[in-house]
Amino acid sequence: MKVLTVSGSPHFHAEESVSKLMYGVVFSLIPAMLVSFYFFGLAAIVVTLTAVVACMAFEFLIQKYLIKGPLTIFDGSAIITGVLLAFNVPANLPLGLVVIGSAVAIGMGKMTFGGLGKNPFNPALVGRVFLMISFPVQMTTYPQPSVLNVSLTDAVTGPTPLTIIKDGVSRGMPVSELMGQIPDYINLLMGNLGGSAGEISAIAILLGGVYMLIRKIISWHIPVAYLGSAAIFAGIFWLISPEVYPDPLFHLLTGGLMLGAIYMATDYTTSPMSRTGMIIFGIGCGLLTIIIRLFGAYPEGVAFSILIMNAFVPLINRGLKPKRFGEEVKNG
């Protein structure tokens, strides 16, 4: 007689798997990738490839020789880390630094804690912040967009809109005057501005976000809470003093806010589990980002704010439970 299989119910399993989800994220990143290639040219392609290969290589080496565990480099998570790391650094960053960043992202940010699903902080952001603090000059030398540039080194560099505003305001110049120095909103939306390789085009990132929402890879809670709270908080300051603080739309379209809200803050492992928790997490990220941007030493605060909120995730998970079915109303 045939050997039957005995297992616990259910006997149906959804078609979803970790690697399918991960490759779904990678797929959704393609529009942003294309925009970055378009504006930063060959340099962006090289940086992205280097980061992906380096991340996968470090994961492989650590799993093979240090942990001596099963290999999971093809589950797609290392690719995401690589792409996101590349998206978060200037496109003309020396490749050696990209490799160092990848090593820190995978080694310190992910494998130290036990690999996929165990890390408290977003690995790509750990890598980025490490580079930011260790190599501030290279990390803030942003190339200006120039269509289809094939050169690797000769990019024209210049400040990002956020830097222009931050420096200008600190010198006492009114925002309305500074706004003349930065591209208009249509260009900001399309991605024609200085910045990290992949964060420039809000519209491409939104497109990827919509794809992930439709495929149910992410839920709307974190992005909406993040962007919403950032807009509201920035709006309050803008209403108080429009000459010192730029308007909310400017905040949404510049820097890494879109990329952060849609890709970095929604990272499964480092975001809260319950819906309410996700909303609180998103609001926290939004507030911190605006506070850092307006009052902090750095012109950009997305990476720091997400990392800070990552640290609160265990607390949020503990405190904010989903609503239970048939929950009895407590007396008093």
């Binding site: 798997s17 699903g117 809260p272 079915f325």
Partner: peptide, 15 residues
């Protein structure tokens, strides 16, 4: 595989 804390189980639990 490792739990990736995607919160799907939480979202779909009818209780």
């Amino acid at each position: 595989q490792n739990c990736i804390r995607c919160a799907r189980c939480l979202t779909i639990c009818p209780m």
